[in-house]
Design a protein around this nucleic acid. Sequence first.
DNA 1: AAATCGGTCAACCGCAGGGAG
DNA 2: ACTCCCTGCGGTTGACCGATT
Length: 289
Amino acid sequence: MGRSPCCSKDEGLNRGAWTGMEDKILREYIRVHGEGKWRNLPKRAGLKRCGKSCRLRWLNYLRPDIKRGNITRDEEELIIRLHKLLGNRWSLIAGRLPGRTDNEIKNYWNTTIGKKIQGYPFADGNRKPPKQTQENQKPTQPPKVDTNSCTKVVRTKASRCTKVFIPQEAQNLDDQIRDDNDHVSNNAPLVAVDQVTDQVAGIEEPLSPIFPLDDENSSCEFMVDFKMDENFLSDFLNVDFSELCNNGNDEGGSVASATTCDKVPDFQSSSMAPVIDYDLDWLIDNTAH
DNA sequence: AAATCGGTCAACCGCAGGGAG
DNA sequence: ACTCCCTGCGGTTGACCGATT
């Protein structure tokens, strides 16, 4: 049995543009009760809207910290660089632009930036597939990133590494790293690997500078904060993780096999997320030019 | 003045992940 | 382990509005 829909279309709920009164009710309710519990919010607040709609209205429009006005040149440059790094991860991009919403940035990209940038994927702003003719009509598919022309986009959706295996060599390396960290600024990327469990996932080259994996040492697992230096990052941003997983075979000590690397990093939900979330500024400054 | 076009943006939709029970 | 609920995300739609014909 499937999940019940968020809000039935025949419940007499209001749709479309929000009225000033609805805004006022929602704003007041959240001021008193705080955010969250969106599903129940409309009933409690006396709004004839679905929870999703309330959430969206709040996040994209009513939130007090929303920044109004045009996107500045600096913000635009930042969006471009972040998009180069992250692709269409609008919420992540928005997270780096205080007061801007993912929806706003997405709209801005689709209507403005995309057209400005020459030679960039989707540069013409036409990210949608060409209008389908009678002849070429196919089932709708999500737009695909051109992996050849956009190799630095971090793939975050397809799959992820849920575990990271650090061999002994890396442990030694880690000791050095810890020493190094004593004089590393707060901006230096650190990744907390906190999901090491009973499975082992490995990443082979080009990540080898940090993960010199081999089968002999594949029995040790531990939690570690490791430094992500510039070389690593450079490789990191260029590697196609899905290939790492798909190309791994069981011979020759390949660690990135399908069985050991069930998924590639998902920067939003995996333990690798801090790389992006905490140190994106550093990433931008060092890689996205 | 009316019709059409194109750009912008708020809102909707469907899906997926995470967590609770 | 499984189901269900809640929430968040990215893609898409459609209303609105100014510019152009």
